[in-house]
């Protein structure tokens, strides 16, 4: 029930932000469409705490800033490799062990790896992420686990048991 409420609130805020027309008819049509979406989501049984992960929000901003910095750094790196061509490439495809605890945390980590240019997560299974990188040096920094530690720190402490 709490998740349904969270989903509804998110949809209402999103609709109000995008609409810009606040007359009776349009508002009631908006309410109707939100109700329809919530009904479909409940019927598909996809409403759980992952739909509206409100318990993450406060620490996320800091993580995003850090991730943006990483993306900028590696974009320049990949740009250099693209322009230098095959000589700068040493593609590697290996497993990186992870210890994230929750599925949500694993998902954020895998998405962050893919979002950073030069590294691409291909598969997540049994506490390893299979990563394809454009150069094998990039695997070293992934194995050091700086990103994994930051993602893990996003989780509320109570959830890590």
């Amino acid at each position: 029930m709490k998740s349904t409420l969270g989903l509804t609130t998110t949809l209402v805020i999103f609709w109000l932000l995008l609409s810009g027309h606040y007359t009776g008819l349009i508002l009631s049509l908006g309410a109707l469409s939100i109700a329809l979406v919530v009904w479909i989501a409940r019927r598909m049984d996809v409403v759980d705490h992952e739909v509206a992960p409100v318990h993450f929000t406060p620490k996320l901003i800091g993580y995003w800033l850090w991730l943006a910095g990483e993306i900028i750094k590696s974009t320049f790196d990949v740009t250099r490799r693209v322009l230098r061509g095959r000589g700068a490439l040493h593609p590697a495809y290996e497993d990186v062990p992870i210890d994230q605890g929750t599925a949500m945390s694993e998902t954020i980590l895998a998405n962050s790896i893919t979002l950073t240019p030069g590294t691409l997560s291909v598969d997540v299974r049994n506490d390893v992420i299979r990563v394809h990188t454009v150069h094998k040096d990039l695997l070293v920094s992934l194995r050091e686990g700086g990103m994994a530690r930051r993602v893990k720190a996003l989780e509320p402490k109570a959830k890590q048991s």
């Binding site: 990949v78 061509g85 490439l89 593609p91 691409l120």
Partner: peptide, 21 residues
């Protein structure tokens, strides 16, 4: 990059670069 990279997976890296940055 789509043309300078040798095969599919490395091309994905070049493509992903624009998407995020």
């Amino acid at each position: 990059g789509l043309f300078r990279m040798p095969e599919f997976f490395t091309r994905t890296h070049a493509a992903g670069m624009t998407d995020s940055m």
